[in-house]
Design a protein around this nucleic acid. Sequence first.
DNA 1: TGAATATATGAACATGTCTTCATATATTTG
DNA 2: CAAATATATGAAGACATGTTCATATATTCA
Lengths: 102, 102
Amino acid sequence: MMEAVQTIHPEKLEKVAFILKTIAHPLRIGIVDLLSKRDKMMVNEITEALGSEQSLISHHLTNMKLKGILDSERDGKKVFYHLKMTEVTDVLACMDKCQAVL
Amino acid sequence: MMEAVQTIHPEKLEKVAFILKTIAHPLRIGIVDLLSKRDKMMVNEITEALGSEQSLISHHLTNMKLKGILDSERDGKKVFYHLKMTEVTDVLACMDKCQAVL
DNA sequence: TGAATATATGAACATGTCTTCATATATTTG
DNA sequence: CAAATATATGAAGACATGTTCATATATTCA
């Protein structure tokens, strides 16, 4: 006889896995980290803050937007990105408190 | 002039990304979740608890062991796995408190 | 309109991941 | 030793991911 030990429900596992998998990349964590501290940032700001390249950052931004994590709005030549899925902020905030990790 | 906004250091980003990437999978979150609640479990227990297959679970266990997240010890025919990298438990514990996510 | 700026896109490539299947190894027990 | 049990391994295929490069699009402004 086995006790019930699994407290996280399967659907929630999927959701957590999805979020984690989507941000589990140095550049993407960097992006989420930046956007959790500023309301919004334009692509070039993000690119420079992370010391990366325009095209690569744009790809990552597009992906994260597609997956519902970010959203963007255009202002003239500039495109500003901001966090849309707030659970992501929660995950990062939680990890901020994880001293062992951060 | 740009303010300093990036509070998470690059090396720590890497570490977090590594941990997240390694567990960011339904089966692997399931495994970590199980092992964070029980000291140790044998492969078959894990396999059945997660409703998966022996070979697949074994692959995931081997991977996570290789990456330093799990460790194992043999007891006769059985092999017991347990958590080794405790930061992982912290991450899960943190996420447990993230109501928005879990 | 044409140049400059900001961002997006798409192809291509390398690389990595997940899964299945078949089979190997290790251990115990009759 | 042979059979049964528990786990590991390796190849293969399908698929996803990360990156680079070249180029496209959009917007502003002179």
